[in-house]
């Protein structure tokens, strides 16, 4: 991965990237640029390569063609926060919210006071400050998801990558979680890449959209991408019109 390409406030740039496993190509000719303050949503059906795309940004998958460039500030991954789709921790292992969130500071050398300050800030942002001493497993699923995000936030990242963080959450919890992310994005200029299969969420929250369909990626500002025909191909005309109506209602 090329990490030596600082371009103004560009954090991630993918140029003609092809991604796949062995001979099987999942995505081809991917071009997108993530800047500070962008809120990207990556949408597509299951198996279209959403996770493959973020794996390439995280350096966990080398592209078979093209280049993935990260800003120098992201090269050692200290300024990247990642929220995986799910946590594989065994429920028989006891851990507190404090310990769980502090694990996000891996590879960060900081003093105890700074560690504690970061922890309090991250928990505060996610509304979990009062739960600091609680057992992680006594939290609700929405609170656990917030703890996962707090674990990424404690790194004070410039870029946050979230792999379907709202799967399995009910509407109100999902909405409040996404509102938190939007606030972090607007107030702190945190760049966000959110993987979702929910077009409604993508249209409502994102500033930029990457739509994955048949191995192709259509990426750009949400207003531009959401008006194109390929959205109909991906989601169907009926579904798309429903989503647009709901999305406008939500915005208004």
């Amino acid at each position: 991965m090329d990490t030596t390409k600082p371009v103004d406030n560009t954090l991630v740039q993918l140029t003609d990237v092809a991604l796949g496993y062995g001979r099987f190509t999942v995505l081809r000719a991917v071009n997108l640029r993530v800047n500070t303050g962008h809120f990207w949503c990556i949408v597509g059906r299951n198996g279209e390569g959403k996770t493959t795309l973020i794996n390439s940004i995280l350096g966990m998958l080398n592209p078979s063609g093209g280049s993935v460039s990260l800003a120098p500030s992201l090269s050692d991954k200290k300024n990247i926060g990642f929220v995986p789709h799910r946590c594989v921790l065994s429920p028989t292992i006891s851990t507190t919210v404090r310990e769980f969130v502090s694990l996000g500071l891996i590879n960060h050398r900081c003093r105890k006071t700074e560690r504690s300050e970061r922890l309090n800030w991250a928990l505060d942002q996610m509304g979990l400050f009062k739960k600091i001493k609680d057992n992680y497993w006594t939290l609700s699923s929405g609170q656990r998801q917030r703890a996962l995000i707090a674990r990424a936030l404690i790194r004070r990242p410039k870029l946050m990558i979230l792999d379907e963080p709202t799967t399995g959450l009910d509407f109100s919890v999902e909405h409040s979680l996404l509102e938190c992310l939007r606030e972090l994005n607007t107030r702190h200029g945190l760049a966000i890449i959110l993987v979702t299969h929910d077009l409604e969420v993508a249209l409502h929250y994102s500033s930029h959209l990457a739509v994955l369909y048949d191995g192709n990626v259509h990426a750009g500002p949400t207003a531009e991408i959401s008006s194109q025909d390929h959205l109909i191909k991906v989601f169907g005309e009926k579904r798309l019109s429903q989503v647009r109506v709901t999305s406008k209602e939500a915005v208004s």
């Binding site: 995280l58 966990m60 995986p84 789709h85 946590c87 594989v88 769980f100 694990l103 674990r151």
Partner: peptide
């Protein structure tokens, strides 16, 4: 606890 996060 979380190998994907560790790798990321």
């Amino acid at each position: 606890m979380d190998p994907p996060m560790a790798e990321a």
